[in-house]
Design a protein around this nucleic acid. Structure first.
Lengths: 234, 234
DNA sequence: ACCTGAACACCGTTCAAGT
DNA sequence: ACCTGAACACCGTTCAAGT
């Protein structure tokens, strides 16, 4: 049973405050984000990133221990790109709702991030700042102690679970441009044994998929908020 | 704009009903599952799978178009490994709760599956059978039309969002055996700027992590169910 | 019809060597 | 202190060739 010394990008000091020459961590992360946003998960490799920076692929390893660390750094940036409402100004319900919607939009804007959600604790500075606000909202609502965490987990779990598939789906559509009619037919065919489901699938195909997803998200969001409210009165 | 013919493992006929010689799809999927369960996501490569089957790595491509398809087949098996309660016998609330807990356990039993959740529509036979039962429960509850889907999505999104990180975490612990104390210290240090959070993290470290997660899951599960119930009366 | 091995075009990462 | 290219140990997949 070999236990390995645990290290994290967030605990180790980055490589000197930058004097002048060559690369920097920010520069690298920034370039990585551009590749990810424009070309998706598969668009980022150490070699491509090196090329984009006019540097050898292995130069990056001076600033970052490995690709996973680089991804952690990139991932945290997502949460800087999320509008949050200060719970001091407004009702906890409104600020929690804004939080959920903002989280969804941030993920949809950076679909590659969907594949990273759920790895090691999201303890980057931007992620911490965001979750701190959510916790404030639930404290204001009346939750205490560990229930603050439970409530926050419930909301974020819902948003993640709802948005991850949506983001992955969008990325798939963009990358592969699949034949949509064929896909719909495939789904209808697969569901053939379940007439109830088949009717529902056809009903969904009659609407704009974007709209359906937005409605579905809001339905669940208010469901979760109602449920949380119920926990408060008892 | 090149739209590619869409195909899926589930729509294409598998390679003949098997006469006698060599490999078969079931055999391959079964071996893949064994590798995944015992060695995790990284334990499965086409070469390793070939070796396990005493065959060339590329023989597999006769039965399956590519690795993604193989993963889809393996992934669907997860939902065969999930206890479901027939909603005809019991209250919708109880059967939905059992469904959620069963889903969580199935994922925790096969943590590698966590990384596959949210890809192309889960339209494998086992997944369909399970979701059909959930839809029955919500129909019995009184939901109608698209709201049946919304309700089902809300519950499954919550379970996925809560369980994916838990499963990935478990896999990480098992594979890398990290130094737990060091990790805790790292988290406490990262959270230094947020005294409220720091207090909560320490409170969590004082309990059994498994227990905390189970309690957290149940809290959210009943929250979602309460929320759904609220949607019914209005 | 089924299986094979060689080959292709990639990966992430290590490391000795350079400035 | 920073950067490099060569090299290692892997990938998934294609394909002409075998039986």
């Amino acid at each position: 049973m070999v236990t390995k010394q645990f290290t994290s990008v967030w605990t180790r000091e980055p490589r000197s405050p930058r004097s002048s020459p060559g690369l920097s961590r920010e520069q690298i992360v920034h370039a990585a984000l551009e590749l990810l946003d424009s070309e998706g998960t598969e668009g980022l490799s150490m070699r491509k990133l090196g090329a984009k920076l006019d540097a050898g692929a292995t130069s990056i390893y001076w600033y970052v221990a490995n690709k996973d660390e680089l991804m952690e750094l990139a991932y945290d940036e997502i949460w800087a790109d999320m509008e949050v409402a200060d719970p001091d100004q407004i009702s906890w319900r409104y600020s929690a709702a804004t939080f959920g919607k903002g989280m969804r939009q941030a993920i949809l804007r950076h679909p590659w991030a969907a594949r990273l959600i759920g790895r090691l604790p999201a303890i980057g500075p931007n992620a911490l700042h965001a979750t701190d606000l959510l916790r404030k909202a639930f404290t204001q609502a009346g939750f205490r102690g560990l229930e603050i965490d439970y409530a926050a987990s419930t909301l974020t779990a819902y948003v993640f679970g709802m948005t991850i598939p949506e983001a992955v789906w969008n990325e798939y559509i963009n990358e592969r441009q699949p034949d949509m009619d064929g896909m719909r037919q495939a789904v209808v065919a697969a569901v053939a044994g379940y007439p109830e489901m088949q009717a529902r699938v056809e009903e969904m195909h009659a609407h704009d998929p974007q709209e359906i997803r937005a409605m579905s998200f809001d339905f669940g969001l208010y469901t979760v908020l109602d449920g949380l409210e119920a926990r408060l009165v008892t």
